[in-house]
Simulated scan of single mutants.
Amino acid sequence: MSALYRQLTLRDEADTVALGSRLAAVLTPGMLVFLQGDLGAGKTTLCRGLVRGLGHRGAVKSPTYTLVEPYDNTVPPVYHFDLYRLGDPAELDAIGLRDYLDSEHLCLVEWPGRGDGVLPPADLIITITQVGAGRQADLKAVSLRARRALAALDDRLSGAVT
């Protein structure tokens, strides 16, 4: 199965949050989403839009120091990982990574490269890069369910995110 790609222009932070909210409407429990990009690219901002799009009303912070932030009050529940400070991929086994990866939760992983060799393959890979004053989001659907999600996302794209 070949991957499905989408490339979106994000003019500002509001566009990044809006993309996260739109993704919330199409992603399904059990999916693993990798978020790639430089520091300050907007990975956590996109996660904030996604988690709020799933019903969370509180703060959405980067779990840089805790490695994982659970959002059990969303539908589906979300585990948000930030592996930036991970010293060794083997540490993921120590925190019980496999227990987090189940069919009931949506898992968002920032800095997935730091978990190489331990993390399973992603369903969806989102790479955010700075382009001028804005950002570009490249979405690559690897699994069948991510392909379906991106196809559904097309129907929801209008307004700020193009």
Rank of each mutant, 00 (worst) to 15 (best):
M1W: 09
M1R: 09
S2A: 05
L4F: 15
L4D: 12
Y5K: 14
R6F: 08
T9K: 04
L10M: 05
R11F: 11
E13T: 04
A14W: 07
D15P: 00
D15A: 15
V17L: 15
A18D: 15
G20P: 03
S21A: 14
A24S: 08
T28G: 08
M31F: 11
M31T: 02
L32D: 04
F34I: 01
Q36C: 09
D38G: 10
L39C: 06
G40R: 05
A41Y: 11
T44A: 06
T45I: 11
C47I: 04
C47F: 14
G49H: 08
G53T: 09
G58V: 09
S62L: 05
P63H: 13
T64I: 04
T64V: 05
T64Q: 07
Y65D: 12
T66Y: 10
T66V: 13
L67T: 13
L67V: 13
L67S: 13
E69C: 08
P70T: 08
V75H: 15
V75S: 14
P77L: 03
V78Y: 07
Y79V: 00
F81E: 01
D82T: 05
D82K: 03
D82C: 05
L83C: 07
G87D: 14
G87M: 09
D88N: 13
P89E: 00
A90K: 15
E91F: 12
E91W: 13
E91K: 11
E91D: 13
A94L: 11
I95D: 07
R98P: 02
R98H: 15
D99A: 13
D99Y: 14
Y100D: 02
L101Q: 06
S103D: 15
S103C: 08
L106I: 05
L108D: 07
L108K: 03
V109M: 02
E110D: 07
P112A: 10
P112Q: 06
G113A: 14
R114C: 00
V118W: 07
L119E: 02
P120S: 12
A122T: 02
D123Y: 09
I125H: 08
I126D: 01
I126N: 01
T127I: 00
A133L: 06
G134H: 06
G134F: 08
A137T: 04
R145P: 02
R145C: 04
A146L: 02
A146R: 03
A146K: 02
A152W: 14
A152Y: 14
D155I: 02
D155S: 14
D155R: 11
R156G: 04
L157C: 12
L157P: 10
S158C: 03
S158G: 12
V161Q: 14
